[in-house]
Amino acid sequence: MKGRVKFGVEGLDEMLLGGLLERSICAIVGTYGTGKTTFALQFAYEGIKRGEKVIYISLEEREELLRATMAQKGWDTEGFGDRLYLLRLDPTDFNLAISSIKSELPALIRSTGASRVIIDPISLFEGLFVDESVRRQEMFAFIEMMRDEACTLIITSETETGNPDGSRYGLVEYLADAVVLLRYIRSPGLTEVHLALEVVKMRRSAHSREIKPFEIFSDRIMVYSEASLF
């Protein structure tokens, strides 16, 4: 029986009944400004604190900016040692990005012994494939490839314009084992905007189906799993 992998976000682990299932694939889906990268970094940091090896692949932020973000949170990045492998791929270099993720990632996971892998955001990888059928085929092949690796995978994705409940290409929520949806909720009088989180699905496990508010602080994320939105 598979164990649980702590996400490292107070309130979210409770909603996941202890954390993600070991060696599962989780998609964090949300529009801009909802904290997808912050959640991904928190997942990475939780692994590092536990002595695990972590691979973080960024297709958007530069390595120095990610390290600066970590430093702002008060994390001792110098003390991470060889537990964090932070890689920045240029999505404009189509062939290199495709080759690195498909060909080199499995070998890197095995050589480092990484138990947590993050790709942020996967939507930029998906966007490298112009043809929809090719995109679907490549994404399915990638996810199947990752299922053979001894790691828990986090992928982040932008929501589709005009559809705050679905990913940009409508694929990751079907391919992933777990989906965490981040969104803005406006109060009835339109006087306040809240950040809210929903665990949309979690294969092979029960989970909370309630929508819960959350806040992003300088050093942590807090999901108010006992609170109501309004």
Rank of each mutant, 00 (worst) to 15 (best):
I118A: 03
L105P: 00
G162F: 13
A178F: 03
R4L: 11
M146A: 07
I118Y: 06
L86S: 02
K212L: 08
E14C: 04
E14L: 10
R83Y: 11
T159W: 07
R135P: 02
Y85E: 08
F7D: 00
R88M: 09
S115M: 06
G3N: 06
R147W: 08
P91V: 12
K212W: 05
Q137G: 03
L128P: 00
N95A: 06
G162M: 13
Q42L: 11
E173A: 01
R147M: 08
V179D: 01
G79M: 10
E46D: 15
L108I: 11
I28S: 01
S58K: 04
Y184S: 00
D148K: 15
M139D: 03
S100M: 10
V180S: 02
M70V: 04
A27Q: 01
L41S: 02
F129W: 13
L59G: 02
N163G: 00
I155Q: 01
G8N: 02
P213Q: 03
R136L: 14
R136G: 03
L190S: 03
V9M: 04
M139S: 05
T77N: 00
E126M: 12
T191W: 03
T92N: 04
I48M: 12
V172H: 01
S157A: 15
D131Y: 15
L87F: 08
I221Q: 02
D120Y: 04
R209A: 07
E61D: 13
L229M: 13
I185C: 00
D90C: 07
G74H: 11
G113R: 07
S111Y: 05
L59T: 05
Q137R: 15
L195H: 10
K49Q: 14
G19K: 08
R186Q: 01
E104K: 08
M15R: 03
C151P: 01
E160S: 09
L86C: 05
A44G: 09
T69I: 14
L21V: 10
T161N: 13
L229N: 00
P121R: 11
S228I: 08
A107N: 10
E132L: 15
A44D: 07
V134A: 03
R88V: 06
R168D: 01
R62F: 13
G162Y: 12
V180L: 07
R4E: 02
F142G: 01
T159E: 05
A71R: 15
I119D: 01
A178T: 15
K36E: 05
E132M: 13
F142V: 04
K2Q: 09
R23C: 02
V223T: 03
R62M: 07
Q42E: 14
L66H: 07
K6G: 00
L190I: 09
I55M: 07
V134D: 10
A176I: 09
G51T: 12
G79P: 02
R183Q: 14
F142W: 13
G189W: 08
L190M: 12
T31P: 06
A44Y: 07
R135D: 09
L86K: 05
F43E: 05
R136M: 13
L84F: 10
G51C: 12
G11A: 06
G3T: 14
G19T: 11
A44R: 06
V117D: 02
Q72P: 00
E132V: 12
F140W: 12
